[in-house]
Design a protein around this nucleic acid. Structure first.
Length: 765
RNA sequence: GGGCGAGUGGCGGAACGGUAUACGCGAUAGUCUCAAAAACUAUUGGCUGCAAGGCCUUGAGAGUUCGAAUCUCUCCUUGCCCACCA
């Protein structure tokens, strides 16, 4: 027998699996489908430790499910549009497309070294025209339903470059490129009316779906449904076109304590106020970036010079302007009740405003209304590397969607995508100028691209029929494969991606394309492997751990197993390689255990195994299987170690024991188990086509059990009884009579006796 | 400020309200060796005792319970997400 040498066996089996297509998903009426999904990666060009952590435990789960008789669908793809490609291109002069597709090639090769059972036959690459064509199709459908509209959204705006900036492109309040001060500006852009689905996106108390509480509550809070009232305050100035201020409040009963009104700097009323100090304040407020607003919480504001009449008390109260009132929430105007609200009091104290009392009994007139924290989703990006918005702007007909049969609107390759103050696509005249589909007059294409969260909101539908040409997906395939049975991913997607995905699913249902309401039965969120210094890994910090180094040293199986073992899947903890050698040692010991197999030709058949041997084996099968089901990968591995410790303490190992061990280990360490499996079964098929061993409940209990004897809850002795007797309390009590230790404690009489069958006998004295 | 979570040996971490510290790392001693590495064996929460044993221990404090790391309350520390949401 050779020594365990991972480097030699791993590529061999990866090739074998590929050649024999053992991971190809095939329709199988006899088996239940199991859609196992991990969030598709961004093709950054390097498979890092985070990818290993995101993909290998789910791979073990998928392999277990497959061995347990499910027809497992485990596809993968690439979320390949987006800013990094464009930034890399600008920096290094490579075209975003070339950069992206080269990275995808590299990463797919790296994925192979991981030894996953991913079926790449259903791969989806979101920057392929065959994919984003359907992005455009969905966008147009949303437009037709009134869900996609031109709206105004507050954005970071560079006044020099004349462009919207992403948060990451603002450095200390200045534009990353030209250094100009970034301001907040309402910019017209494409928005999706996710708010129309707000109610349906709220998780009901008793959902049958298995999603973490953290996600359900997080999303519900984010949607932030609040019931309140809109109350009108008459402005004491007859020259304004706006005569009334409408405010939203959840506490109408405090209206008698309204001491002043506050409106947001962006409130339309401000356009009618010409005073210089007011305009100066508004300008200053617009310069504050998000970061500054977060950091500086001191109240600022300016008196508008006008008053409004409190509908309850009839008193005139001043109208102030302050950026602590948000334009986007409610009506962008509040009634300030400093007596009851801390922020209002802070403001009143800062500007010496009088504070009126409220007895919380006011009953103002007003419209009952519901407000949501959730905003509509702005999807326009003034960027090159994304899905072109499939719209045409015509002077006569305004906005006209591209006819569906003309899709996709392909992204032109030769475009100057360096920032120029207008969207890169706008500089490609040949692409930009088209005829209006309605009136045939000269018109222009929309030069913006879609947010990449649009791409990832529905990619898992496309996996089901990646080459389908009659629609975004084949409805029959969807019936077969959706919804997803388990969706693995990161917690950073709680308020973005997974919410959008739910929104899209509900939209598809409204279109009649699908007959379910939620896209994933179960959501499993992993933690994060931090750098060895306990901080998030990043190149700038120089704390990035490269998994390839460990793969080279120990092999992929060891790295997979270690990632499963080192911490719970949900945990966030620093990377440490201190224990990886222990996992490697474990695999070597499994390998070496071949030597101990009793010759299968001998008469020592598994029927001759002792009850302890049966107990150990069946307990391991149960524990490993259960843990793979419930995603407790670390304790599954420890159960394997415990059993191996038992097996290696014996003189010989039964073939049944050893083969069972290999099958339990196969989901974690697919290569070594395959190698050894073939070496002891030369004519066998792949171990990954074997069934996961079944345990028998009767073997998971020992013949005798230890009962703990307590006195007043303190352990004083243990006794061993036959497990058939565990239900017999008086028998157990009698047994303890022999114990000198116990006698000593209970000689003065027993007040009460508590017996937990098979566990504990507690005397209360 | 709001929401969700976490605090257990030297370290990563196990423990349906029922033997706390499984498993792994590290450490100590031993076997093997000229030596080292590797491998194997034993020990490894603290205090106390020659020993049998006893006492203490899951961030701090209270409570519920025959019994609490686990449930409840208060506080402390810490992580993540959101954040002037009226």
């Amino acid at each position: 027998m050779n020594k365990y040498f991972a480097k030699e066996i791993e590529p061999k089996w990866q090739e074998y699996w590929e050649k024999n297509g053992i991971y190809k998903f095939k329709k199988d009426q006899k088996k239940k489908k199991y859609y196992n999904l991990v969030e598709l990666p961004y093709p950054s060009g390097d498979l890092h430790l985070g990818h290993w952590f995101a993909f290998t435990p789910p791979d073990a789960h998928a392999r277990y499910k497959r061995m347990s008789g499910f027809n497992v669908f485990y596809p993968n793809g690439f979320d390949s549009f987006g800013l990094p490609a464009e930034n890399a291109a600008i920096k290094r002069g490579i075209h975003p497309k070339d950069w992206t597709y080269k990275n995808i090639e590299t990463m797919k090769k790296q994925f192979e070294t991981m030894g996953t059972m991913i079926d790449w036959g259903s791969e989806v690459i979101t920057s392929d025209p065959e994919y984003y064509r359907w992005n455009q199709w969905i966008f147009i459908k949303m437009y037709e339903k009134g869900l996609a509209y031109r709206g105004k959204a507050l954005s970071n705006w560079c006044p020099v470059d004349q462009t919207v900036l992403a948060n990451e492109h603002i450095e200390q309040g200045k534009c990353w490129r030209c250094g100009a001060e970034v301001i907040q500006k309402e910019v017209e852009q494409w928005c999706l009316k996710i708010t129309e689905y707000a109610d349906r996106l709220i998780w009901p108390e008793n959902t049958s779906l298995d999603w973490p509480k953290e996600v359900k509550e997080g999303q519900n809070n984010w949607i932030g449904k609040k019931e309140g009232m809109l109350i009108k305050f008459r402005i004491q100035n007859s020259e304004f076109r706006i005569r009334e201020l409408e405010v939203f409040t959840t506490r109408p009963e405090t209206t008698d304590g309204v001491s002043f009104l506050v409106i947001a700097p962006e409130h339309p009323l401000n356009k009618e106020i010409k005073e210089k100090r007011v305009q100066t304040y508004i300008e200053e407020a617009s310069k504050k970036t998000e970061m500054e607003r977060k950091e500086d919480r001191t109240k600022s504001g300016v008196f508008s010079g006008f008053e409004a009449k409190n509908p309850v008390t009839g008193k005139n109260i001043p109208i102030w302007i302050s950026d602590y009132v948000l334009a986007g929430y409610g009506s962008g105007a509040i009634m300030a009740v400093p007596f009851a609200d801390e922020r209002d009091r802070e403001f009143a104290e800062k500007f010496n405003l009088s504070i009126l009392k409220t007895d919380f009994k006011a009953k103002p007139e007003g419209k009952k209304t519901v407000n949501y924290h959730l905003r509509d989703w702005s999807v326009s990006r003034q960027r090159y590397w994304g899905t072109p918005v499939p719209m045409i702007h015509c002077e006569k007909c305004a906005v006209v969607p591209v006819p569906l049969e003309d899709l996709p609107v392909e992204l032109p390759y030769k475009v100057d995508f360096t920032p120029k103050g207008k969207p890169p696509l706008a500089s490609d005249e040949a692409w930009l100028n088209v005829k209006c589909p309605k009136c045939e007059a000269p018109a222009k294409r929309d030069a913006e691209t879609l947010d990449t969260f649009f791409d990832s909101a529905w990619y898992y539908y496309r996996y089901c029929s990646p080459n389908y040409e009659k629609g975004p997906f084949d409805e029959l395939k969807i019936k077969e494969l959706m919804p997803i049975d388990i969706y693995f991913g990161g917690s950073e997607h709680t308020l973005g991606h997974t919410l959008y995905a739910r929104f899209f699913t509900k939209f598809f249902k409204d279109l009649g394309l699908v007959n379910f309401d939620e896209f994933a039965q179960k959501r499993a969120q992993h933690g994060v492997i931090l750098g060895p210094d306990g901080v998030r890994m990043s190149k700038s910090r120089d704390n990035v751990v490269n998994p390839d180094d460990f793969v080279k040293e120990y092999g992929a199986d060891t790295v997979r197993l270690y990632i499963c073992f080192m911490m719970p899947y949900t945990a966030t903890a620093p990377w440490s390689d201190s224990a990886i050698s222990g996992v490697y040692k474990f695999l070597k010991r499994v390998w070496d255990l071949q030597n101990k197999i009793k010759d299968h030709k001998s008469n020592l058949k598994s029927e001759n195994m002792s009850s302890e041997e049966f107990y150990q084996m069946h307990s391991a099968i149960k524990k490993v299987g259960d843990d793979l089901d419930t995603l407790n990968f670390n304790t599954a591995v420890s159960a394997l170690m415990i059993w191996l410790n038992f097996l290696s303490s014996k003189k010989d190992v039964y073939r049944l024991e050893y083969e069972t061990l290999l099958k339990l280990l196969a989901p974690f360490a697919p290569h070594i188990t395959e190698e050894v499996w073939h070496s002891i079964n030369p004519s066998a098929n792949s171990i990954h086509l074997e069934n996961f061993p079944l345990y028998q409940a009767k073997f998971t209990v020992r013949e005798t059990v230890q009962i703990i004897i307590q006195v007043n809850g303190k352990i004083r002795d243990t006794i061993e009884i036959d497990s058939s007797k565990i239900k017999d309390q008086s028998f157990v009590e009698n047994e303890t009579k022999n114990s000198e230790k116990i006698k000593k404690y209970i000689q003065n009489g027993v007040k009460n006796t508590i017996y937990v069958p098979g566990k504990i006998l507690n005397f209360v004295v």
